[in-house]
Design a protein around this nucleic acid. Structure first.
Lengths: 400, 400
DNA sequence: CCAATTAGTTTTCAATCTGAACTATATGGG
DNA sequence: CCCATATAGTTCAGATTGAAAACTAATTGG
């Protein structure tokens, strides 16, 4: 007998409805809905909602926030919200910085801190030590605000094995199959620390806390070119968990060889390194290469303009192919591409028009406004979503 | 309040378990499992399974097939199977033929019939009239075998709006936004007729009734180049339902313009028309263009060999990009590509090795063995799966 | 101050699973 | 031939849980 699905038990109904109620409170966080409003929104009866909310309040996931008098008549309701006294720590390792943020269950960034750090080539251990210091700051901030930390999310710019806490490959850090121990960053957090990919986390951040629609492709132009695919408000990771590698789509069969071993990849045309080089902005320039590039663009410097135009053209090709294959209807530009958006967008759009006319509307190509915090929010958000999706685990084993 | 998920009711548990039991019987069709075996396989108790099976038998979806004595001692079980007296009609409209098949719930092709028909440029009405004749044959076959027809699936080589029975675009038939009335093909079938895309149906046929693994990309080289993406044993259709359009991935930025309005699409290098032309096999050749091409390849004719090699090279590029973007781990070649596989595979593999080394193992590039019946089985299978996934609907309103 | 209105709780009921006890039907050794 | 053993399948009590309806609580406005 080959089976997979678990049998439905009577108690599953309650698990599902606990999640449904919690999700409803999360979605309507602005309204601080009452039990009656949650009942109307979910389709459950008031009686059922009362019972479910009682469990959620007892577990500490939901708080009552005083009376709520909005209507004209009748008894006022008790406003409900995800507890602001439970939080998750978002963390990010990137090529030239480290960052942490403390996010409460409601998705508010209550504390954050970033330090520059040239991590390329450093051993994971050394980087994790530095990150632990930052995590300590977040823990201190949580303690002084009376927030219990439930868990954490750690985003890295590479492919990860989430189950086993391994960074399979992060070429821009020069990491290859590195075992990490992210749990050590937050000793004692009941949900532990979840490892994730940077572009994927940024995409989720955009979905939950930015302007992302239910279906879009997030394009992250950090040192590498990464992507995150959101379908029906869920991250699409593919069977092996490494979907969204937009940077290694082949955009020219005679293109230069790529660090991935292939050739003609988008990253060889639109990666930061390729753009800086084509724009003739040497490595180690004083004042920062990005700033110099922006200055050159503002000054109409021809190499810079051409470099960005070409990057946009090939990005357009990759987006056209992606849209055909995955039926993508919207694109959000992040990272480096968000910074360059004013110069990049026109050539991306004209390239899309040439290679896939009518497929993507110009309005559906948007630019992220979350900047770096998007990745932190997304990394933490994955743990928050895990709580919202199965709050049952919290009902008995309540954290202090 | 913005909500989507439906609340869990107590009765949902039974709906889910009915499906679970039916699915277990379907998966283990070879074993004709007993109630006790289903209980062991699903994790439900014998008591629950007995009650669920009673409902399924009463509805006519499941039959008992005599005693089952396999063990050494003890009371023998009643073997269970999906009823062979309930069936679904699979139908296909393609550019140069029409086909129907009668498939019972167990997935056995009980009757099939194909006729050649040059449908390109014909009005949908004329084609549907011809198809109705074939459907009549299937109905007659069902009647004489005592099979009740529950519904049907109709596959067409183009993009469809499944909800509204519209063929949005089938360029190779010269159809554009055509309203069909597939229900008329099977008057009175309780589940109606479901419209679907040919490549997607073929992919599902491969998954359910062929050798397809749980995750793969099916590539259909009919007149156009189509694709179907299977992820975790489910068809990935994308937010708008048009995912898998492999034929219009851009494989060369300076490539020729394409019927889709774009340029450099895979179809302009690897579509049937492009291959025949490059191989210098003129339209309307006596003996069939495919047969002539195979003969030319067998005779080492240089234009033919080059045409197929180039098609393979560009197909390899498209597969490399697809694998990066969607994390695809296996590919099944179907249609024209299956016929040409012996000559095509080497160049596809060397192209993959050049553009995405190590990404796809050579063994994971396989060739479909279902041929045309794959599409019929897939089209019908979608209705069969719908029954397996929600058998509850059948419990009260039982078809005769 | 009371009618109207809305929030939330209590009570009764039905659905449905689990678990244990029970019945049904086979095999095989004495 | 018969009974211990084993396996299949059924019956029934018990627990969980949401629906529906009746009820209590709290507020506004005339």
């Amino acid at each position: 007998m080959n089976e997979q699905a678990a049998p439905g038990r009577v108690g599953d109904v309650r698990r599902r409805n606990l999640s449904l109620v919690l999700d409803s409170i999360a979605r309507n966080a602005d309204a601080k809905p009452s039990r009656a409003q949650v009942a109307a929104g979910t389709g459950l009866t008031k009686a059922a909602v009362s019972s479910l909310v009682a469990d959620l309040v007892e577990s500490g996931l939901v708080s009552e926030v005083g009376l709520y008098r909005d209507g004209e008549r009748g008894r006022p309701g008790q406003g409900l919200e995800l507890s602001s006294r439970r939080g998750v720590v978002g963390m990010e390792i990137n090529v030239d910085y480290l960052a942490v943020g403390l996010v409460d269950l409601g998705g508010n960034l209550r504390f954050s801190s970033t330090v520059e750090s040239r991590n390329r080539g450093l051993k994971p251990g050394a980087v994790m030590e530095q990150l632990a210091e930052l995590a300590g700051q977040a823990k201190a901030a949580a303690a002084s605000a009376g927030i219990t930390i439930l868990g954490g999310g750690l985003a890295v710019p590479g492919l990860v094995d989430e189950q086993r806490n391994i960074v399979l490959s992060a070429p821009n850090l020069h990491w290859e199959h590195e075992q990490l121990n992210p749990q050590a960053l937050l000793e004692g957090a009941p949900l532990g620390v979840r490892l994730s990919n940077e572009a994927n986390s940024a995409a989720l951040g955009e979905l939950w806390y930015g302007d992302g629609p239910a279906d879009f492709l997030y394009v992250s132009g950090e040192v590498g070119v990464g992507g995150g695919v959101i379908i029906s408000s869920e991250l699409y990771t593919g069977p092996g968990g490494s979907a969204g590698e937009l940077g290694h789509i082949v955009v020219h069969p005679e293109g230069p060889s790529c660090s991935c071993g292939g050739a003609g990849c988008l990253e060889t045309f639109a990666g930061q390194e390729a753009v800086f080089e084509a724009a003739r902005i040497p490595e180690g320039s004083l004042g920062g290469r990005t700033e110099l590039l922006l200055a050159a663009l503002a000054a109409d410097e021809p190499h810079a303009k051409r470099a960005v135009r070409d990057a946009g053209r090939y990005l357009g090709i990759a987006l056209a192919s992606s849209a055909r294959l995955m039926d993508i209807e919207a694109v959000v530009l992040g990272g480096h591409f968000a910074v360059l958006a004013d110069w990049l967008k026109p050539s991306v759009l004209s390239s899309l028009e040439r290679y896939a006319p009518g497929l993507l509307e110009p309005e559906s190509l948007t630019v992220s406004r979350l900047e770096h915090s998007g990745t932190l929010l997304g990394a933490a958000g994955q743990v928050i979503r895990a709580v919202i999706e199965s709050p049952f685990e919290f009902l008995l084993g309540k954290p202090a």
